[in-house]
């Protein structure tokens, strides 16, 4: 690892427990690089996670970290941010953690537009528990609980977050690591709820069952299936079939929750004094 990044990791905990070829390691480094480049104070940074493969990440990162209960990472993070608004709060969560078990917390944190940086590791499956399908498993994909193909439709996380009221939404992949890092930095600078969906890959539970090949082939798939939102605007709709958009998908500043809350406290104090 780059020597200048080593202070951001708990080096004695590495190597991590993720499977060979898991994309989570690449995304975790993108987060570390983004924190390093944005220049925020490491002692004023908290990383919160829920349960799942992705949520192991804060255990390897040298910050004040919080490994919380399943799906409730955003609820804990809301409490941390509201109690001490000067902290930079990151939430690392997985596809099942954020959209199935914590689906309600997810939409309400976005609705409040509280200043959290959420990085959602999307590997399309519940990897840690043996490969059950999640709300982000694409229709038709095989999983242990859908051996003949998933009949359900999957969520489009950025659209869900935009509809719920998030002020910054982006999507990167493990292959486009530089873009992912830039999106996370933009999320840090955004005052409000920032959601970065990071497309990861799970060669062990998802790739193997769906015959997508090894880790390198799955990474190659991300390269071919992803299309930057700026390039997509110039393309006809038939060329976008089967592709997904990456880049900055939504950036619309809105009143931030903790600031509004402080304003209300100040207003009420003023009225009480009069």
């Amino acid at each position: 690892m780059r020597p200048d990044l080593q202070e951001l990791f708990r080096m004695e905990k590495l190597p991590h427990i993720w499977c060979p070829g898991c994309g989570h390691g690449i995304i975790m480094r993108a987060i570390a690089e983004a924190i390093k480049e944005s220049g925020i104070d490491m002692d004023k940074t908290v990383i919160v996670s829920g349960i799942g493969c992705s949520s192991r990440a804060p255990g390897y990162m040298n910050f004040d970290t919080c490994h919380t209960i399943h799906g409730r990472a955003l609820a804990f993070a809301t409490g941390i941010k509201l109690a001490n608004p000067e902290l930079n709060v990151f939430v690392i969560t997985g596809d099942g953690d954020a959209t199935a078990i914590g689906g309600n917390h997810f939409i309400h944190a976005a609705r409040r537009n509280i200043d959290l940086n959420v990085i959602l590791f999307n590997n399309n499956i519940y990897g840690m528990t043996g490969g059950q399908y999640s709300p982000l498993t694409p229709t038709g994909s095989k999983a242990t609980t859908s051996p003949y193909g998933n009949v359900e439709r999957n969520f489009d996380i950025p659209t869900l977050a935009i509809a719920a009221g998030a002020s910054y939404v982006g999507r990167g992949t493990a292959y486009h690591d530089k873009l992912l890092k830039d999106l996370i930095i933009a999320g840090i600078n955004n005052k409000g709820f920032s959601l970065i969906e990071a497309i990861s890959m799970c060669p062990t539970s998802f790739g193997r069952r769906n015959k997508l090949g090894n880790a390198a082939k799955m990474l190659e798939l991300q390269k071919t299936a992803a299309i930057n939102v700026k390039a997509a605007q110039k393309l006809p709709p038939e060329k976008l079939e089967g592709k997904f958009l990456i880049g900055e998908l939504h950036n619309k500043p809105a009143p931030e929750f903790t600031e509004e809350y402080d304003k209300l406290i100040a207003k009420l104090r003023k009225e009480a004094e009069q």
């Binding site: 190597p15 070829g21 090894n214 880790a215 990474l219 190659e220």
Partner: peptide, 15 residues
């Protein structure tokens, strides 16, 4: 190259 941490996923030499 820190071979102690290598899990032989094959990404590096494919990419």
């Amino acid at each position: 190259i820190n071979l102690k941490h290598c899990k032989a996923c094959g990404i590096c030499y494919a990419i």
